[in-house]
Nucleic acid binder design. Sequence first.
DNA 1: AGTATAACCCGTACGC
DNA 2: TGCGTACGGGTTATAC
Length: 276
Amino acid sequence: MPELPEVETIVQHLRTCGIIGKSIEKVSVLSADCIASGSPTRFKKLAAGARIKHISRRGKWISLSLDAGTILVHLRMSGSLRVLGEDEELDPYDRLVLELTGGKRLAFRDIRKFGRAYLVQDPEEVLGNLGPEPMSGELTEKSFHEMLTTRQRQLKPLLMDQTFLAGMGNIYTDEALWEARLHPARRSELISPTESRRLFLSIRKVLEAGIRNQGTSLGDGLANYISAQGEPGRNQIHLKAYGREGLPCPRCKTPIEKIVVNQRGTHFCPTCQQLR
DNA sequence: AGTATAACCCGTACGC
DNA sequence: TGCGTACGGGTTATAC
């Protein structure tokens, strides 16, 4: 379930794997539907021979900048990127494999086949509709309040809307709303400046904690995200609301409740986060 | 136009 | 024990 902190961790890890500067010698598309921009044949033709210049992130998207074009990967919830040595074998869930000069391979592995890879000339084709980066200067307390009050949505689905804000998923949204003491179903147009400031600061706080802890690894082995190379993240220990239904709220000891908001499991404290 | 809901996929957990 | 079924996760497509 990679959200912004997990994707950031993956990108940081990939940068240490010695694939930057390498060229793509061969492309294997093992599952055609993971290629979202044109045909697998086109993808192979454009990627073959290209050199990986640098690796970055935008929202939940991973960007491999090539000397000609850009590969954009979205892991959705069960995807991962692995760098394999020459002696390491693929597994049945590897969907796309880039063989690099020097023998390493970059494998896009995805159990549920929701993830997608694009190869585009202009990244804006794919990233153009994303909202601001929550950690960047383009988002301010003032602009955030304006963003909230000019929409008429419930807070939770709004925060998870990637065109509103880039990078929040189910876990960090529940955590940010708990931190800000705001009910997930609160209407965005009714948020006061004080409340939006709390939410703004809470979003940054939970995302920064997630990155510092190298992501949240939940233990069902599937949604289980392994921060790139077998190292699980540590953020799950620090979760205050997500996955804690029935357990005491760390602030007031009221049992955390789990409800469904916009078809998403939603965890919150009924005492601290009142709808009013 | 803006907002709300359904559908996509598939391994796992759970109930009977 | 074995089988069937609901669930979750992010996004896109469709409906309102």
